[in-house]
Amino acid sequence: MEIRKFTLSIIVMNKFGVLHRISGLFSKRGYNIDSLTVNVMPEDERMSRIIMTSSGDDATREQIIKQLEKLHDVKEVKLI
């Protein structure tokens, strides 16, 4: 399967350790993080938007999205 780069927009609750949860999920499951930025959402400071680029085949990309969606503090995951 072809390895491709992709970018995810992840909206999370600004709770304790949320970045640790996301990065921990990637290392635990052996996914790559190529780049990552986090910004508090101006419209609602209780939340942050994480923009992350990663790489993998189609199956890996689908798994990453599904695993992220399972985290309690993750509210939305979008492929952009």
Partner: peptide, 16 residues
């Protein structure tokens, strides 16, 4: 312990 158990819990908390 919250850091340690992150990968092995559905979710965890430190109450602050």
């Amino acid at each position: 312990i919250a850091g340690i158990t992150m990968p092995i819990t559905k979710h965890n908390y430190i109450v602050k």
